[in-house]
Structures are given as C-alpha cells and as structure tokens.
C-alpha cells in the first residue's frame, strides 16, 4: 500500500465538488489515482466535470468534500502562502493559449521564470532549450499574432513546462486546432511525458485519444464511468450502469475509498 501512495502523483479520494446547491454536483464522489510519469486522458461531454477536476488539482477551487492529494500532499492542508509553491510544480495549458500579446515568444516563456525570481542567465539558457523541445527554434522573436494557432499553443506549452513541473495539466489544448496541427501538439505533449512529466489532458477529441492509446478516464455528469489503460475514446466494453468495476492503468481493480495518503509528502518535481 505505501508504495502505491508514493507512486500516485494525483490522488482523488471521494471528491465531490458542488458549485450550486440546486444543481447536481460538478464532480460526484470521485476516486482516482494518476501515477508519476503517467499520461492520462480525461474525456467526456461538455459539462461532465473535466475542467473542475483540473481546477481542484491546482487548488483553484476547494473540494466540497473528500481529499485531493498532489505528490502525496493534501492540497486542502496547504496554507495560502504556500499555494504558489504547489503551482510551480504544475504546468497548465488551455484551449485559448493565453499568451501575452505584447510580448514575443521568448518573453512569453521567460515571463514564467521572471515572476518566480529566476536569474537572467538561467532564463537565457533555459528558454531556448524549452523552445527547441516544443519545436519553435528560431521563432524566439515572433509576436503571438505572427504565429499559427498550433505554434501559439506550443509557446503556451513551453511556458507551462519551462520551470520543469512534475505535472502538466492540459484543458482541451487542441480544441481550437485542426486535426493535423493537433497531432503535432500531441507529439509535443508525448515528448514532455517521455521526459518524466505526468500529463493529464482533458479533451473530447476522439481522433486524438484513439491515436494515442493512453489511459482514458471518462466522466459523465461528474461521475467516472470508465477508466481504461491504452484505451479508445469510446469504450469497447458495453457499459452497464455504474456498477461496472473500474480499472486503473496497470489493469488492477481500484477499490473504492482507499486509505488516505500516508506517504512522504514530496515536492511536485519530476
């Protein structure tokens, strides 16, 4: 058991999130573990709770009940002045890129290092390296409006990983891109995952999911209805209500309501 706790980079224990008392919960008693170094898709229709899941990992919102562990640490127990440290260990990319329009590619990526006090020389060395990883060599001085959507998303990914976070959360990163460009972005995310970063990607792009053959966690109305390793966007197994046993990445059955994380509380670093 302790071994599993240590392996889990993200762990949800009976997590429920209610935004509005009158509506159904956005997430309803979620139990889920994502291991260090894993690549997991979070799929499901719009409104199924994918973004809410990612927001809880970031401590952007508080779980109504249950516990969220990131690198063995219960995020509810992280005091507000230490939340920045949690977020330094997590990179995030969005559908809408969120670049700073008046800064060029280099400056957009460097911004993430400047604001946490990295020295000029470290920035000068690291940024070109990361831009190379995402395939933007030689485009340091372009402005965001001079880039295609795919290139803009690569800048956003570079910014998200430039501080070497242990986790990369991607909320529909290909939502605004055509299929070919999307596959290019997936290549970048896969490469980052190969380098040891845990990647969780929310999407409803079935082609991508089918192509990648990674773990798929399917949400519906805030409930996990499927959790399959090396899976497709739509299940091959017929779903019978919610009584079906869920499987984790290694194919083992995941018991409901596991023990709280008692493992070492580590930094979110890869």
């Amino acid at each position: 058991m302790p071994c599993r706790v240590l392996r889990a980079m993200i762990r949800f224990e009976n997590v429920t999130k209610v935004y509005d008392q009158k509506a159904r919960p956005a997430l309803d008693s979620i139990n889920l573990e994502i291991d260090r170094g894993e690549f997991a898709f979070l799929v499901g229709a719009s409104g199924s709770g994918k973004s809410t899941f990612l927001r809880l990992v970031l401590k952007e919102d508080r779980a109504t009940s249950g516990a969220v562990y990131v690198a063995g640490q219960n995020v509810a127990r992280i005091s507000s002045w230490r939340v920045p440290r949690l977020r330094r260990g997590i990179g995030v990319v969005f559908q809408d890129f969120r670049l700073l329009p008046q800064k060029n590619v280099f400056a957009n990526v460097a911004f993430a290092m400047q604001v946490i006090g990295k020295s000029r020389s470290v920035i000068r060395d690291t940024v070109p390296e990361v831009l190379k990883t995402v395939g933007l060599e030689g485009k340091e001085h372009r402005m965001p409006h001079e880039l295609s959507g795919g290139e803009q998303q690569r800048v956003a990914i570079a910014r998200a990983v430039v501080n070497r976070p242990g986790i990369l959360l991607a909320d529909e990163p290909t939502g605004n891109l055509d299929p070919t460009t999307s596959m290019g972005i997936m290549g970048v995310l896969d490469k980052i995952n190969q380098n040891g970063t845990t990647v969780v990607m929310a999407t409803h792009d079935d082609d991508i999911v089918n192509e990648m053959r990674k773990r798929v966690v399917e949400l519906k109305n805030g409930v996990v209805i499927r959790d399959e390793a090396r899976a497709l966007y739509t299940s091959m197994i017929p779903v019978v209500g919610q009584s079906r046993r869920l499987k984790d990445a290694s194919g083992r059955e995941t018991p409901d309501g596991g023990l709280p994380g008692t493992g070492a509380e580590g930094e979110v670093q890869r």
């Binding site: 002045w81 920045p84 440290r85 330094r88 995030v92 911004f111 604001v115």
Partner: peptide
C-alpha cells in the same frame, strides 16, 4: 488580469503579483 492570471498559474508569490 491576463498577466496576473498567468503569474498565479505559474506560481508567482502574492507579493510579486
């Protein structure tokens, strides 16, 4: 707000923001 949103996400401290 776009800058500060990004600063928050990449873990800038409250003081820097």
């Amino acid at each position: 707000r776009r800058e500060t949103g990004i600063m928050r996400l990449v873990g800038a401290s409250k003081t820097v923001i």
